[in-house]
């Protein structure tokens, strides 16, 4: 039990009517061990972002449970969920999501300050150093490139030493060279610091940095792949696309 950072059990999220609505997640069972790097892949609309939202308590699951560090957080109220995010979950989004009027260093320190903790300037400096932005600590997001902003977001995600870092297409808006730097940073956090990362991505190359790939189709787990390579992932995705095409043809 205790070796799992996050577990989801029979997780379902229905938007709209319970019977007729969109089943964004439909009975998902997944374990994310401590110190693992998992990539979540699947066609657009397959429920990847919804899965991350449910794990982070940004959204309430319709059915099923979410356990973080072995603790069932499914029924927590909004205050408790915000505490969960503050203390045990880090976030990286596709579109950076930094506070536009705070400097890089202030953005990184923000989760700690929200938690009423002293934001140790040395910690912030070390983290910014790790992501190669020691020189840019005093800059506003608008003065940084996309890749630099994303690195600030990564530093922020790790600042509170969370149980898990959730990344939704963290390289989706970046060129491939910058994307590689970001992926190397994430990989290093897992290998060197035993952090746990769950990353949604559409890119087989990005997925190959993970220990394992989980494929979602129509809100269900459609397969796993351990020790992924870019080619194997691309092949599997093509196969899934055929399945989806066949499925919708049958449905029609």
């Amino acid at each position: 039990m205790d070796t799992m950072a996050v577990q989801v059990r029979r997780l379902a999220r229905v938007y709209g009517d319970h019977q007729l609505g969109v089943r964004a997640l439909d009975g998902v069972d997944l374990d994310f061990p401590r110190g693992s790097f998992t990539a979540v892949m699947g066609p657009s609309g397959s429920g990847k972002s919804t899965l991350l939202s449910c794990v982070a308590g940004l959204d309430r699951p319709t059915e099923g449970e979410v356990l973080v560090d072995g603790e069932n957080v499914t029924f927590w109220d909004e205050d408790a969920r915000s505490r969960l995010r503050r203390e045990r979950i880090g976030f990286v989004f596709q579109s950076f999501h930094l506070m536009p009027y705070l400097t890089a260093a202030q953005n990184v320190a923000l989760p700690l300050r929200l938690a009423g903790r002293k934001a140790d300037p040395r910690l912030v400096r070390t983290l910014l150093g790790h992501v190669g932005l020691a020189e840019r600590a005093g800059h506003l997001p608008g003065e940084l490139s996309g890749g630099q902003q994303q690195r600030v977001a990564i530093a922020r995600a790790f600042v509170a030493s969370p149980a898990v870092v959730l990344a939704d297409e963290p390289t989706g808006a970046l060129d491939s060279a910058t994307a590689k730097e970001i992926l190397r940073l994430l990989r290093a956090a897992v290998t060197d610091l035993r952090q746990t990362i769950v990353m949604v991505t559409h890119d087989p190359v990005a997925a190959s940095y993970a220990d394992r790939v989980v494929f979602l189709v129509d809100g269900r787990v459609a397969g796993h792949m351990a020790h992924p390579t870019a080619d194997a992932v691309a092949g599997q995705l093509a196969h899934l696309d055929q399945l989806v095409a066949a499925g919708s043809a049958v449905a029609r």
Binding site: V73, F75, W76, D77, D79, A80, R81, S82, R83, R86, E87, M99, P100, Y101, L102, L112, R113, L114, A115, G116, R117
Partner: peptide
């Protein structure tokens, strides 16, 4: 029953100034 409570919260007043200026 709702969970472990809201926990400790930090001050946020300092955000007001840069935010207004933005």
């Amino acid at each position: 029953p709702g969970g472990p409570g809201g926990g400790r919260l930090g001050r946020v007043g300092w955000l007001a100034r840069p935010s207004l200026r933005h």
